[in-house]
Amino acid sequence: MNIDLAVNALVRQLELEKSDICSKPINETEIKLSAQQLIPAVETILDAGIWHLSTITCLQVADELVLLYHFWHSKGLTLCVTLETEHAQINSLTTLIPGAEFYEREVREMFGVEFVGLTNPSPLLLPDDWQSGFSMRSEKPNKTESEA
């Protein structure tokens, strides 16, 4: 029930459109946000008592990077933020949720998203002298979903 309350609070505070909210299989709700809305949205969610950030997924769709913040409280709630691949930059959640540190560091290394305010930006998985770019980015852009 908490998830529904949180979704309502989000809609109220950030003045979201109905089309930004869609439900996915296995009790999952997805909300599309802009990069600037992320921090206020997470604050709202934390206030609603949803403290568990499962993970942050990053994926490349055409020349855009999509960041998915998966929250959970008996049901799933995913915040979806889309960034340009070049100079991808977003605010870090580590001050609000210290547990996000490793997820953000992993995304940073694998996809090259810059997290502003990340508490510890040293390499986590890759060696110090890693030169070969961002290994999880696709070499040739994927087809977008609509094309498929």
């Binding site: 996915k24 296995i26 499962s54 993970t55 997924t57 998966h70 959970w72 995913t78 979903e145 498929a148």
Partner: peptide, 25 residues
């Protein structure tokens, strides 16, 4: 079919999360 899903389960060490996104291929 194209779509995305988040699947969770309780491993011995805690919650495992899988995110699968399909583009229909």
């Amino acid at each position: 079919p194209a779509g995305e899903v988040v699947s969770r389960s309780e491993a011995p060490r805690g919650e495992v999360v899988y995110y699968v996104r399909s583009d229909g291929s």
